[in-house]
Structure formats: C-alpha cells, structure tokens
Write a protein that binds this DNA or RNA. Sequence first.
DNA 1: ACACCGTACTATACACTGTACGTTAAGAAC
DNA 2: GTTCTTAACGTACAGTGTATAGTACGGTGT
Lengths: 218, 218
Amino acid sequence: MARTPRNTLSADLIVRTALELMEAKGTDAFSLRGVAGELGVGPMALYTYFRNKDDLYDAVRDHLMGLLPAVPSDEAWPDQVRAVCRSLRLLMLQHPCLAQLLAGRPLSGHETARVAEGLLGVLRAAGFDAETAARTHTTLFTYVLGSTSWEIQMAAERRDPEAWRRLRTSMESLSARDFPSVVELAPELARTTGGDEQFDYGLDLLLAGLQLQVRTPS
Amino acid sequence: MARTPRNTLSADLIVRTALELMEAKGTDAFSLRGVAGELGVGPMALYTYFRNKDDLYDAVRDHLMGLLPAVPSDEAWPDQVRAVCRSLRLLMLQHPCLAQLLAGRPLSGHETARVAEGLLGVLRAAGFDAETAARTHTTLFTYVLGSTSWEIQMAAERRDPEAWRRLRTSMESLSARDFPSVVELAPELARTTGGDEQFDYGLDLLLAGLQLQVRTPS
DNA sequence: ACACCGTACTATACACTGTACGTTAAGAAC
DNA sequence: GTTCTTAACGTACAGTGTATAGTACGGTGT
C-alpha cells in the first residue's frame, strides 16, 4: 500500500473535476482547494499540471468548447451562422460557468480555435473578404457572449429570492412621472431578459444587416 | 481633538474613493480594506453605509451611469440610438471597471433607470411597440456590454507583456492545415478585437436590421 | 541489485479577502 | 446630567491563491 500514490492525477481529470464542482456548487464556489479536496489531494498538487488558477480556467473553457457540434455543411450561410451562434448559446446555458470563463480571459486552446475556424470558414465561403470576415466574427461572438451572459446572470438573480425581491421593490419605487417608459415597459423588460426569442431577435437583426451588406457591396 | 471623529464619512465620499482606487490600481485591486485604508478608517466603517461589497458595487455603477449625457433630441431615431450606444461605450472605455460592474450584477439605481428611460423613449417615439422596444433595448444593451467588455479585456491583456507573448505563441502553434482560416486571418482578428470601427460595424448591422424591420412591419 | 534522479506530491506559511460579532464613544434629545 | 442612537473600532474567523521547501515514489542506467 503506497502512502502517497502517484500518477493518479492528470490534467484531464483535474479539468473534469473542476467542471463538475463548478456545475454542482456554482461558478463562484470553485476554488483550487475545493478541486484538490475533491480529488483527495493537497492544493499544491494541481500546480504540477497548471501554472495557476487562470491556466486551469483556460483548460476548462477549452474542454467545454470541445463539446460544440461541427457546423452543418449543407445549408445556406445565414443558417450556418445561426446554427453556430445558437449552439454556443445553448452550451453556455447548459454550462453557466462558461459565460464567466469566456468573458474573463482571452481565447486560446485548440478546441476554441476549432470553433473559430468553423465560423470563419463559413464567412469566407460566403464571400466575405478577410477584414469583413474578422469583423463579423468578432461581432457575432461578442453578441452571443454579451446577451447570453446577461441572460444567465438574470436567471441566477431570479433564483435568489432575496435579490429578486429587492430588484422588484427598487423597480416599483421609480416614479411614473420621471421614468414613464421604464415603468410602462417593466413587464416587457422583465420578459425580454432572456429566452430563445430574445436571442433570436438580436441575432436576426445582425443577420439581416449582414445579408443587406452582401447584396449591396460598397 | 476627537480620537474618533464622526460624520467624516458619507456614502458619496466612499463611492468616489472606491472609484478612484479602481481606476488607479485596476479593477481587481479594489477591496473594502483598500477603500477603508484610503479613507483612514477601519474596514467595518463602510458597513454603516453599505450592506456589503456588492451594495457598494451597485452604488459605484449608478454613480458612473450618472455621467452619461442626455440623448440628443434633434436627430433621427437611428442617430439617437447610435449616440446612446456610443456614449455608453465611451464611458466604459474611460472607466474600465464599469464593464465588470455592469456585467456582474442586475441593473438598479436611479441613474441607471434614467439611461434606460432615454433609450426606451427614443424607441417608443420611433414607433416601436412595447415588446419590440423592450427586445431592442435588451439587444442593444447586451451588444454594447459584450463588445465593449471584450474590447477592454483584450486591451488589458495586450498591456501585460507576459500574457501577450503567450497568446502570440499559442496562436502561432496552430497548424495552417487544421485551421486555415484562423491562421490566415490572424492579423485581421487581432486588429478587430476593438476600436471605434469594430464597434460601429456591429452597431450598424443592428441598426440596418432595425430600419429594415420598421419599413417592413410584419 | 543498487544507486541515482527527475518528478509528483505534501507541508508549511504568507498576505490577502469579506464580514460576523461585540465594544466604545461622540453627538443629540430631554 | 442622563439617556438613546449610531458611527466607527477591534477582534476574529473562514476562506482565498500561491511561494517555498521538503519528501518519497517510479523509472533508468550501471
């Protein structure tokens, strides 16, 4: 019986454990000590496989990006773009921690590059020049990131009854004289903080703009 | 000489000090102890004015939102929308901490409501119905939030030479066979992670989609 | 078989964090 | 002068990431 068994760890095992922990106890509850504890190991053991916490973050992000399906190849380019954006959003909803992992750090890793490659390939094949393809890629990515992060954030807030109550009362304290539109549209605003329809609404605006641009090149 | 002078603090003074600290030492360097130290006061003194750290965060965010200019009233609605989005982005660039303050917590506070009121008012005046106005508001807000947060994040990364070097090398390690588009467009992608042009590109796509929708109501 | 060495892991320690709790003293009201 | 409220203090706790140093296992060379 080895008192300190070796080679029981691996980068992949650590990543999967970290991911499980984030999904079970919430993104914020994640800590190196927590992951190490789950693995029955001291906190410093992780530093054999990752330079620091951010490095582990990046690895988890890339692992999640690997779960994205390939771009459908037998569709028109607007539908392909829609598919890529929708599947990224779905992945983020399925793994809420992904929102923070994507927002907080630059993109890196092979799986992440694969996803970018898919979208860029669609855009190039559709006839976009290099600069426009890059601009469009960034625009789409930041839209998906922003809107879905917001959606997740709001959903989390709604789950916390105390925070939700405070939000409602602070909403109701607004005078209808000073803020007529906000007060009038409060129910609509609450309804449009997320959901498939809201996401598709913005995405379709972007796609409409794109198609218009393709048809009338400057 | 009073050993513990009283009434030297105020919510507003604390907010301003917190803001100064965040801008001087970076958003992450902000801590209750740091703010209290700057004010020559114990950490717990702040709890007289704020329930907790998030509460202070919200106050700082609302304070910053108060700096946004009013919506120009003598322009066509697409230009008004553009002006609102641009000024929010500029404020975020000027106060990088605002990105995190907006992303991490739900919106609240009077100044924040004032800004929402401005944009919603423009949309209602332009003839959008309640639901479409709310959807558009959310779409525009999340686009500005996502794209500008990303821009700030990338700019910060570029300022850290170590992180920037690692990013470059990880980019260059991608094989041109597996990731042809990413490798080919690397320079364009690096160039389009921010800047006025990139922001306006996406914003104009959204506005083009919106105008199209107005002209051809379902 | 045995010494060796790189490496996987442990142990300890440091400088932080937010905040719960209990105490003290300043200023106002009577 | 007495009493009440409250602003600010001090202490303490349970965390955090990680630098540094030490230890014992596994595979390799002789």
